[in-house]
């Protein structure tokens, strides 16, 4: 495909990259040519610290990405049932930006 079509989300998160743990504030998501995984197209996610420009990159097959969506939802559903509300106050207020 090789386009600039991209989804972008503001997130409150941490990731471990080349320089160790860091805050990441943006997830850039696109389905296009990957760099490493041996597929023509992959679901690519870059977790980015927009101040330093450092990123942690993940490349997933489409099937893997859908499985991950399902597992994330499952983990949230079961985890939130136990820990409901306990971390809400720690996250700053911010509007999620699904499209860019």
């Amino acid at each position: 495909m090789c386009s600039y079509i991209t989804e972008k989300a503001e997130i409150f998160a941490s990731a471990k990259g080349r320089s160790g743990w860091m805050n990441v504030d943006t997830a850039v998501i696109y389905y296009d040519h990957p760099t490493h995984i041996p597929l023509d197209h992959a679901l690519n996610i870059d977790f980015v610290n927009s101040a330093t420009k450092e990123r942690v990159a993940v490349e997933l097959s489409a099937k893997s990405a859908r499985e991950l969506i399902r597992r994330i939802q499952s983990a949230l559903d079961s985890g939130e049932a136990i820990h409901l509300g306990s971390d809400d106050a720690a996250e700053p207020e911010r509007a999620l930006c699904p499209l860019f």
Partner: peptide, 9 residues
């Protein structure tokens, strides 16, 4: 690849 990702973003 990092610069490409930055340009895309």
């Amino acid at each position: 690849d990092d610069i490409g990702a930055r340009a895309r973003a």
